[in-house]
């Protein structure tokens, strides 16, 4: 694969063109990564509305019918329901890890097996999060295992 990068000082918006014979899985993955780069979510904290980049979000969690977005050191209230977020983030680095949580696999530092059949993830901010054993196969797919 050839990679060409052209730098223009007058460039207002980054433009990515892919020239290929057919769109295979690798190209699909590359497109998903590029799409994820520009994805944002409108969130709220202390009545202040903010736009969060998807790559800054570690995970989404649903608690008492409300959805929260967790970053490295903050928690925001998200307007969308977890199933809506699940649909939006299809094909990105996010994966469902329990009925109430969607995790960004890019935020994981390490994974460890637990005796109750679950996997324990340590995130980049040292927070620990459990992956329900029913969601382990989908989680493995995110790492091409």
């Amino acid at each position: 694969m050839k990679l060409n990068i052209e730098i223009f000082k007058e460039c207002q918006e980054i433009e990515v063109s892919i020239r290929c014979k057919e769109v295979d899985n690798q190209i699909k993955k590359a497109i998903d990564i590029l799409k994820q780069r520009d994805m944002t979510f409108t969130v709220k904290k202390d009545d202040i509305t903010k736009i969060l980049k998807v790559c800054d979000i570690y995970y989404f969690e649903s608690v008492d019918n409300r959805t929260f977005a967790y970053t490295s050191n903050d928690v925001y209230l998200c307007q969308k329901k977890l199933y809506e977020i699940d649909k939006i983030l299809l094909g990105t680095s996010f994966v469902r890890i329990s009925k109430s949580c969607i995790l960004n696999t890019d935020s994981i530092d390490a994974v460890r097996a637990s005796l109750n059949g679950k996997l324990e993830c340590t995130l980049s901010n040292n927070e620990k999060i459990m992956i329900n054993r029913h969601y382990v196969p989908e989680f493995k797919k995110k790492f091409d295992i």
Partner: peptide, 13 residues
Amino acid sequence: ANEKTSNEINKKI
């Protein structure tokens, strides 16, 4: 089995 999986994932990370 999970121990094996976590080792593989840690390698990928």
